[in-house]
Simulated assay, not measured.
Amino acid sequence: MEKKKANGNVLMLAEEHKREKEEALRQIIELEKQLDKKHLLEMEIEELEGKLKVREHLGDDDAVQTEIKVLNDKLNQKKAKLVDMEALNQTLVVKERQSNDELQEVRKELIEGLQTMLTNARTNIGIKRMGELDVKVFVNACLKKFSHEDAQINGVTLCSLWQDNNLKDSKWYPFKVIPTDNDEAELRLNEDDEKLQSLKEQWGDDDGIYMEVVRALKELNEYNPSGRYVVPELWNFKENRKATLKEVISYIVGQIKPFKKNRTASRK
C-alpha cells in the first residue's frame, strides 16, 4: 500500500513537472522575443536621435521645425514604449526565476518520491548519494592485505573514518586554482596534498581507495563545497551521469503503467 501511494504521488509530481516545464519554456521564448524587440527599439531610438541632431543644425525655418517636432514626438513615444518593455522584461525575468525555483522544488520532490519507490531496487534510473564513499571499494582493497573477516572490519572502519573525519571536514580543501590561457581560472585537485599523498603511498593510485576518495571529493566540491555532506541526486546509472528530468519521468511513467493496469483489472 505504501508503494502504491508513493507511485501515485510521484505520478502527480511528474504531471505537475510537465506543466511547469512547458510554462517555463513558454516564458523563456517570450523573454527572448521581448529582448529582440527591445534591441530593435533601442536601435530605432538611436537612429531618431541622430536625425534630430542633423535637423537641429539645418536652420530655424518652419519646415525644419515641423520635422523636428514630428521626430521629437516619435522619439518620446519610442522611449515610453521602451520603458514599458523594460518593465515587461523584468517581470518575465522574475517569472523565469520563479519557474526555475519551482522546477528545482519538483526535482527535490522527485528525489524523495524515488527514494521511496526504489527501496532495495536495482534500476538504471535512481538516486545517487553524491560524495558518499563506496564501502565495497575499501573492503575489496583490504581483501588484498587481510583475511576475509579482518578485511570486512578494516574496510568498513577505514571508509567511515575517511567519510567522517576527512571528507566532512570543510577545513580540508585539497584543491588549487590554475590560470588558463583564456584569462580564466580552473579548479583542480591538489595531488600534492599531504593526506592524499599518504593515502596513495599506502593504497596505491589505481581504481581503489585513492580514486574513490578523489571521486567523492570532487562530487562534494561540486554539490556541497561549504557543508561537505552527502547530497542525493537523480542519476542515470547505466550511463553514469546525472539523469535528466525527462528520463526520470519516463522511468516513473513506465513503472506506474503496470500498477494502473493491475488496479483496473482488480476492479473488474
Rank of each mutant, 00 (worst) to 15 (best):
M1E: 04
K3I: 14
K4Y: 04
K4S: 11
K5G: 00
A6H: 00
E15C: 09
E15F: 05
E15D: 08
E16K: 05
H17T: 06
R19L: 11
E20F: 01
L25S: 15
Q27D: 09
I29W: 11
I29H: 14
E30Y: 10
L31I: 02
L35W: 00
K37C: 03
L40F: 03
L41Q: 03
E44S: 08
E44H: 07
I45A: 04
I45Q: 02
E46P: 01
E47P: 00
L48W: 02
L48V: 08
G50V: 07
L52R: 07
L52G: 04
K53D: 07
E56G: 01
H57W: 01
T66I: 12
V70R: 05
D73V: 13
N76P: 01
K78Q: 09
K78S: 13
L82C: 08
V83H: 02
V83S: 04
D84A: 12
A87S: 05
N89L: 11
V93G: 06
K95I: 00
K95D: 06
Q98D: 13
R107Y: 04
L110C: 03
L110I: 00
L110W: 00
I111H: 03
G113I: 03
G113N: 01
L114Q: 02
T116S: 11
A121C: 15
R122K: 14
I125S: 10
I125K: 02
I127S: 06
M130L: 14
E132H: 06
D134F: 06
V135P: 00
V137F: 09
F138S: 07
V139L: 12
N140T: 13
C142G: 01
C142T: 04
L143G: 06
K145C: 06
K145H: 07
K145A: 08
S147V: 11
H148D: 13
E149A: 10
A151K: 02
N154A: 12
N154F: 13
C159S: 14
S160Q: 07
D164A: 12
N166I: 15
S170E: 14
W172P: 02
Y173I: 03
P174K: 03
K176C: 08
I178K: 04
I178W: 02
N182W: 11
N182S: 15
D183C: 11
L189G: 03
L189F: 10
N190C: 14
E191Q: 10
E191W: 12
D192F: 13
L196S: 02
Q197T: 05
Q197N: 01
S198N: 10
E201G: 01
D206V: 08
M211T: 07
M211W: 05
E212N: 09
R215F: 13
Y223R: 00
N224A: 08
P225R: 00
G227Y: 10
G227W: 10
G227F: 13
R228C: 13
V231R: 05
L234N: 03
N236C: 13
F237W: 05
F237I: 12
E239H: 15
N240V: 14
N240S: 14
A243E: 14
A243C: 15
A243K: 13
T244M: 08
T244D: 09
K246I: 14
Y251A: 05
Q255K: 13
I256S: 08
K257F: 15
P258M: 12
P258A: 10
F259G: 11
K260V: 15
K261Y: 15
N262A: 12
R263Q: 10
T264Y: 11
A265H: 08
A265R: 13
A265G: 07
S266P: 00
